[in-house]
C-alpha cells in the first residue's frame, strides 16, 4: 500500500476522530436520510445539494481527509455516472414534461430531464459515499465493530449471537492489513521468480494471480488455525459473558454534534415534507427559473 486511499483510517486527533463511534454511525444514517429527502423543484434540489457539498467539505477539512484523494475517488466512479445517464435518458418515462433533447421518432424521444435526474442521483451517491468514507477514515475499525455490536444488543433477546458476529467482524477487520502485508510479501517472492503481475496475456496473468492466491489461502488457513488455538488456550468461550478492554463513552462533544445534526436534518425533513414544492430561488430572490 503505497498510497493512502480515501476512507482508510488515519490516526489524527481531530474533533470528528474523537466523537463516539456509535454517535457517528447514527449521524451518518441521519445525514443520509437528509440527502435523500426529495424536493419537487429541480433548482431547489440542486441548491440543497450544493449546501450539502459545502458541509461535506467543511467536514472533510475538520477530519483531515485529503481533498485530492476524494476527487480521485469521484473520478474513478465515471463509469457509474455513464451508466446512470444511459439508463435515465434512454428508458422512456411517460411522466416527462420537460424540454426535448432529441426526437428519434414519433413515439420515442429523450428529454433533458433524464440528464438532470441522472446527475442528481449521481450527486447524492457521491455525497452518501463520501460521508461513509469520512466515517471509516476517522473511526478505528474495531470501534466501529463495537458500535455495531452495541446497536445489535437488543437482538440478544431473540438469541441472535451478537457477540459472536461482532467478534467475527473484528477479527476479519484485524486481519485485513495482515493479509495485505502477506500478499505483498508473496508478490515480491513470486516477482523474484520472474512473475510479472502487470504485463502479459490473460493466461499469464491468471497464472500470476494463482501463484499469489494459493499461498495466500494456505497462510490464511494456517493463521486462522493458530489464532483459534491461541484463543482457546487462553480460555475463550463465545457463550460466556465478557468484559471489555475498550469502553465506548459518550462525551459532551457527542451531545453538541447531535444537537447540530438533528436540528439540520429535522429542518430539511420539515421543509421537504411540509413544503416539498418550495422554490428557493423564487422564495429568496423572487425570480422564477426553470424550463
Amino acid at each position: 500500500m503505497n498510497s493512502i486511499s480515501f476512507g482508510r483510517y488515519v490516526n489524527y486527533d481531530s474533533f470528528v476522530h474523537k466523537l463516539d463511534a456509535r454517535s457517528k454511525i447514527l449521524f451518518l444514517i441521519c445525514l443520509m436520510i437528509m440527502i435523500f429527502m426529495p424536493f419537487s423543484v429541480w433548482s431547489t434540489s440542486l441548491i440543497f445539494s450544493l449546501i450539502y457539498f459545502v458541509l461535506l467539505i467543511v467536514l472533510m477539512i475538520m477530519s483531515h481527509c485529503s481533498f485530492l484523494s476524494f476527487l480521485k475517488g469521484i473520478l474513478s466512479m465515471w463509469f457509474l455516472f455513464l451508466f446512470l445517464i444511459i439508463i435515465f435518458i434512454f428508458v422512456p418515462n411517460p411522466n416527462m414534461s420537460s424540454v426535448l433533447l432529441y426526437q428519434f421518432s414519433d413515439n420515442y424521444a429523450i428529454y433533458w430531464d433524464g440528464v438532470y435526474q441522472a446527475g442528481y442521483i449521481f450527486l447524492r451517491l457521491i455525497l452518501m459515499m463520501s460521508l461513509t468514507l469520512i466515517l471509516t477514515a476517522t473511526t478505528k475499525p474495531l470501534d466501529l465493530t463495537y458500535a455495531l455490536e452495541w446497536y445489535m444488543t437488543p437482538l440478544k433477546i431473540i438469541n441472535f449471537p451478537v457477540h459472536t458476529i461482532a467478534m467475527m467482524i473484528s477479527i476479519a477487520l484485524r486481519f485485513i492489513p495482515t493479509f495485505l502485508d502477506e500478499a505483498q510479501r508473496i508478490m515480491k517472492a513470486q516477482a523474484s521468480r520472474g512473475v510479472d503481475f502487470s504485463r502479459g496475456g490473460l493466461f499469464k496473468k491468471m497464472k500470476a494471480v494463482i501463484s499469489l492466491i494459493i499461498p495466500l489461502f494456505i497462510s490464511a488457513f494456517e493463521k486462522s488455525q493458530q489464532l483459534s488455538d491461541a484463543m482457546e488456550a487462553r480460555g475463550y468461550d463465545p457463550n460466556s459473558k465478557r468484559s471489555k478492554y475498550r469502553k465506548l463513552k459518550f462525551h459532551l462533544k457527542d451531545l453538541f454534534s447531535a444537537i447540530f445534526v438533528f436540528t439540520l436534518v429535522g429542518f430539511i425533513m420539515y421543509l421537504s415534507i411540509a413544503h416539498g414544492n418550495i422554490d428557493v430561488i423564487d422564495f429568496v430572490f423572487g425570480v422564477k427559473v426553470g424550463f
Binding site: E182, A189, S192, S211
Partner: peptide
Amino acid sequence: KHVGVVFQFPEYQLF
C-alpha cells in the same frame, strides 16, 4: 534472472 532473492520463510511461496 541474474539476481535470485530468497525471502524469509520462502516455503510460503509454494503453490
